[in-house]
């Protein structure tokens, strides 16, 4: 092992933009950036014009889905060609089903199924989601081939149980290993 932290770590302090914590130094071989490069500015850590994500943003299409009473609509998302849905239904205050990844045979790292719940007039009342996150730091592999079928259950908030007439789901997040 002859390489180590070349020059820096840019510690990004919450709410304070970029704060530089120069941990520069050289490893046992003396490796360091040459004058032509500047480790403090080489990594692009800000993107003018990029609106930071707002965690409460709705996936596109859920606000206008307006599914018919008694149904569960599937709103198009970016990864619809990578999975199949089976058994999707709204019953007993829960939208549920199974998603099977068809594009890869590997561990499922990230999956979010977002559901919108609507009243009898098709107005969006609220949203909720089912999240699958594989923590690689603690993950252990299941027996056999990777299980690429993820069942999901998304409950209607108790306060809205008597108003929800339909649902729509979409999949905005999907990452395989």
């Amino acid at each position: 092992m002859r390489s180590i932290l070349l020059a820096l770590a840019l510690a990004l302090v919450a709410g304070a933009g970029v704060a530089c914590s120069d941990r520069s130094g050289t490893d046992d071989s003396g490796t360091r950036p040459v004058a032509a490069v500047d480790p403090l500015t080489a990594a692009k850590t800000s993107f003018p014009g990029l609106e930071p994500a707002r965690p409460g943003d709705l996936p596109l299409g859920l606000d206008t889905a307006s599914p018919a009473p008694g149904t569960v609509a599937v709103v198009p998302g970016p990864f619809d060609d990578r999975f199949v849905l089976r058994g999707v239904r709204l019953a007993d205050g829960v939208v549920s089903g199974r998603l099977t990844v068809t594009s890869d045979v590997s561990d499922l790292l990230e999956l979010e199924v977002v559901a919108g719940f609507y009243d009898a007039d098709g107005r969006l009342l609220t949203t909720a989601k089912a999240v699958h996150h594989l923590d690689e730091a603690v993950a252990s592999h299941e027996e056999g081939p990777p299980d690429e079928t993820a069942p999901f259950r998304i409950a209607v908030p108790r306060r809205l149980l008597d108003r929800v007439a339909s649902a729509a789901i979409t999949v905005p997040v999907l990452v395989n290993e």
């Binding site: 020059a7 820096l8 770590a9 490069v37 480790p39 990594a43």
Partner: peptide, 9 residues
């Protein structure tokens, strides 16, 4: 900590 990459260099 963010560490710059060779391609960035």
């Amino acid at each position: 900590n963010v560490v710059p990459t060779l391609m960035e260099y």
